[in-house]
Amino acid sequence: MRLLLVEDELEIQRFLRQSLGEAGYEVDVASDGATASSLVSRFTYDGLIVDLGLPDQDGIDLILQLRRNGMQSPVLILSARRSVDDRVKGLEQGGDDYLTKPFAVAELLARLRNLLRRNSSGKEDVTKVRVMDLELDLLKRRATRGDDVLNLSPQEFVLLEYLCRHAGRVVTRSMLLSEVWGMRIQPDTNVVDVHIYRLRGKIDTEGRTPLIKTLRGIGYVLKNH
């Protein structure tokens, strides 16, 4: 998959290019709007990552201009601004996503994956999710591990569903807060961790292979192999 990163800060450019490269993406980089426009007119990208504060023009103007010229690829907007512009909200409703700086790389990758998947195959319509011997029935809201039925609260079910859908990949606390609880907050306390511990207590019972792994300082992974 080929991405265009439009970002003028060299440091951010460097580590993003590296992280995206390691995640298996091919990345082109533009440091300003003009370069980005000419690159988009010459190549086809599967997705764009655009910083709003570009030296020559506003990132939103660039996105709107590219859209007018027929570009359909999804855009992940990076913003260091304090308030979310109404136009960003418009783009978000149109299927694009935004991320406030500073962000966790894991979160950027997760959002990017979501965007690209949404674009390629539309919304997947599954009724069952399987990770190893863990199975979620999304219609009956029932979770089983092996032969055991797991006794989960509705909240825990949603949390586990999110982890399963991102099995094998890092999910951060702020991803969980925004996707499972629907809020963008940064608690001073380990509220999310306690939910994970409780969930782990129900899933990774004695004698079973632990599925939920903690990555200190980053987040969690639900192992899928």
Partner: peptide
């Protein structure tokens, strides 16, 4: 806004590097 921007950009870079290292 510019204060936030000027502080957040380097913070983003630092955080990214730290994460990569981790």
């Amino acid at each position: 806004d510019s204060l936030a921007h000027d502080l957040r950009s380097p913070l983003t870079a630092i955080r990214g590097q730290l994460e990569l290292a981790l």
